[in-house]
Structures are given as structure tokens and as C-alpha cells.
Amino acid sequence: MVAATRERPAVQAVGARLSVEAVSHAFDIRGTPLPVLDRVSLAVEPGGFVALLGPSGCGKSTLLRLVAGLEPPDQGLITVDGDLVEGPDPSRLLVFQDPTLYPWRTVRGNVALGLEAQGVGRATRAARIDQALGLVGLAGFADAYPHQLSGGMAQRAALARALVNEPRLLLLDEPLGKLDALTRLAMQAELLRLWEEKRFTAVLVTHDVEEALILAERVIVLGDRPAAIRAELPVDAPYPRHRDDPDLVRLRRTILEILGQTT
């Protein structure tokens, strides 16, 4: 059993290198093009943790969708470990802004989906699912249906569904957005612990400047639609970080100024 849970080679657990080069994208709304991304370039080193901040509707989710391979970008290149992203792949997982669990599957069944698709054996699957559910604190809810979960629990289930696949690149679209303040803090710590342990590469979209500063090694601020990168700020404070850290407080003010919300 123990050997079976480690059937993937150790290299797989290491984060991927992400590179986004001059990506522009537009949507077509009733014949009129709506430019959403404007020559966005960013690079995330293997095992890095980058947070994306930006006004609502600027194109953050769109950028993650492109990186996940759900849509091809109109212009520009997206590569992961040097390979062009041409479609979705389980090594590059997107956790949606809303949990999008399958209502007809139990929590366990939802988390199992990726492993089933890869043909992972039943016993191994069960062990890995239990482990993932334990990580997000849902061990007691394996057999619950999504409608029996709270909003926050549903998001944690969605997180477990991604983590169980040991992605090399984890794309998180406001995964903690629906959590109450306390659970949110706990999940931030949890996410950090997971990231430090598994060493996946993480791209986190969030509205919460503080969250970005607590978690990320680098914060990227996007401007209004069509989104272009306004600023890129390294966050050098060591983990675990404290929100009252004067460096972070200063950074926070800078970011809020860039976002145009001077407080």
C-alpha cells in the first residue's frame, strides 16, 4: 500500500516552470471584440508562488484558463517546462472560482475523478483520496454530496480534487474567496504548508492583497481591462509571515496605491 501510493516518480512532485510571453486575448461579444489581455508576460520558476491581483473583470480568470489550456490565446506563447500549452493536462490543474463539483458524485467521487481518468487502481485511489481529504479537513465528509457541504467546504473539496492528482502547476482562482475570515486564515496556512511540502508551482488569483502578501513570493498587479501588467513586486519576507510585518504593511500600501485604492 505504502509503496503503491508513491507510484509516481519523485520528479513529478516538483513544480513546473511556467512562462507566459506577450499573451493577448479578446472575447467576441456579439460581433464586437472585447480585448481582455494585453501583451501579458510573466515567468514563474519551478516551485514558485505567484499571486495575481487586479480589478474585477480585468481578465485574471481568463489568464488562468489560457494557462490551463482550456482555450488557446489569440496571440503570444504559453509554455510549461518549455513545452507549448496546447490543451488541458492533469499536471496543470485549475481550481475554479466556484467549486464546480459534480452534484451527483459524493465528495469522494468528486476527488476520485482525476485518478479514475488516469486509471489509478482502486486501492491506491482510496488511500490517496483519504489523504487529500484529510489535508483539507474533510475526512469526515467523504460520503457527503456537494449540496450537503457549506460553501467553504465545497471549495476545500475542489482543492482536494486538484491536490490528489499531485499537480506540478496549480492554478488557483480565488479558491478561498467564499471562506469566512477564520477558515480563510487556516486555509492560507494549510495551502502554504502544502506548497512547501509538495513544491508545486502555484499561481494564485485573489482579491485580497493581504492574502497575496502572506502567501506569494511575488505579487503581480494587473491593470484595468484589457489587463496589462502594472507592477511586479517581490515579497522577500520569510515564511511563515505575519500580517503586521512592517515590510508587508508597506508593500500592501504600495499595491493598494497601484490598484488606485489609496487608503
Binding site: D89, P90, T100
Partner: peptide, 15 residues
């Protein structure tokens, strides 16, 4: 059918 439900399936590369 919710487009995102299908997209989750695509991400996991279901046939």
C-alpha cells in the same frame, strides 16, 4: 449542461 462541469472533465483529460 454547465460548461465548467465539462471543462473540469477536460482538465482531467477524460476521453
Amino acid at each position: 449542461v454547465d460548461r465548467k462541469l465539462v471543462e473540469v472533465g477536460r482538465i482531467f483529460r477524460l476521453s
